[in-house]
Computed example of a mutant assay.
Amino acid sequence: MQRYLRLYAYFLQFSFSRAMEFRLDFFFRIVMDLVYYLVNIAFFKLLYLHTGTLAGWNERQAMVFVSIYLLVEAVHMTVFTDNLWNMGDFVYRGGP
């Protein structure tokens, strides 16, 4: 098990160093993600400025839901997205 964790750490280190080849693009992606998260949270904050509950949910409950959604979405984007975006091309060309 420890061998696989070490191997995953190497993969993560390689991926990070590859992403840092284009530093400006890397930092723009980070800024873009932060803006996306802030807009989602600000949207619900704005809704709850005008109402106490929404469909029986108070602001704290909605923020927990939004936070979990954003966390799951971030993990999904990190782990699966690059491969899924390329899958159609792989199927079309018959390559790995």
Rank of each mutant, 00 (worst) to 15 (best):
R6C: 06
S15M: 04
F28S: 09
A42R: 02
F80I: 10
L71V: 13
A19N: 02
A42D: 01
K45N: 11
V66E: 04
L54C: 04
V72F: 12
E21R: 07
A74Q: 13
L46G: 11
L46V: 01
Y10I: 00
N58G: 05
T78H: 06
H50R: 02
H50T: 08
Y69R: 11
I30M: 05
D82K: 01
G52V: 03
L84P: 06
F43W: 10
D89A: 04
A62V: 13
A74S: 15
V72L: 15
M20R: 07
T81A: 12
V75Q: 06
I68E: 04
V35D: 03
G88W: 14
G94C: 05
T51Y: 11
E73W: 07
V66F: 06
R23N: 08
Y36L: 14
G94I: 09
V35S: 03
V35F: 08
A9G: 08
V31L: 10
I41D: 01
Y92V: 03
A19G: 05
R6Q: 12
L71H: 08
Y4R: 09
A55Y: 14
N40K: 02
Y48Q: 03
L24Q: 14
Q13R: 01
W57E: 04
L5R: 09
N58Q: 07
I30A: 06
L24M: 12
F80K: 06
L12T: 12
V79K: 04
F90Q: 00
M20A: 13
Q2N: 15
Y37F: 15
V64G: 02
L84R: 15
Q61Y: 03
A42S: 08
M32L: 14
V72S: 06
Y36S: 10
K45S: 05
F16R: 08
A42C: 00
R6E: 14
F11N: 02
I41Y: 12
S15N: 03
Y36N: 10
F14K: 11
F26W: 08
L49Y: 13
Y92L: 06
K45Y: 13
V91W: 11
V91I: 15
Q2E: 15
Y36A: 12
A74K: 11
L34P: 00
G52S: 12
F26R: 03
Y36I: 09
R60L: 14
F44D: 05
E21N: 06
G56S: 00
G95P: 01
S15E: 00
N86I: 04
V39E: 05
L46M: 07
A55E: 08
K45W: 12
T53V: 13
L7F: 05
D25R: 12
E73L: 10
K45H: 07
G52L: 10
R29S: 11
G88I: 04
I41L: 11
L54F: 14
S17G: 02
T81I: 09
T51W: 09
I30S: 00
G56P: 03
W85Q: 11
